[in-house]
């Protein structure tokens, strides 16, 4: 699953640690999700969406879909 975490983070000038603190997870978790090595659970995906103030589908994309 692709995601726009890195772009959204950059738009807000947040480091991985900043986002991790907002989500209540480790920086390693943010890094793994950002790199596409770990797909978050639905509750964590909703929390990420809440933090960015966007719907989930604006953050997470199907494989092969980068937009």
């Amino acid at each position: 699953m692709n995601n726009r975490l890195k772009v959204l983070r950059a738009e807000r000038n947040w480091s991985q640690q900043d986002l991790a603190d907002r989500l209540g997870v480790s920086r390693q978790s943010v890094n793994a999700i950002e790199k596409g090595r770990y797909d978050p659970s639905l509750p964590l995906a909703f929390t990420i969406a809440d933090v960015f103030g966007l719907p989930i589908e604006a953050i997470f994309l199907r494989n092969g879909n980068s937009e």
């Binding site: 209540g24 997870v25 480790s26 390693q28 978790s29 793994a32 999700i33 770990y38 978050p40 659970s41 964590l44």
Partner: peptide, 8 residues
């Protein structure tokens, strides 16, 4: 452990 990635 509440961090699901670390738990994995």
């Amino acid at each position: 452990e509440t961090d699901e990635y670390m738990r994995q």
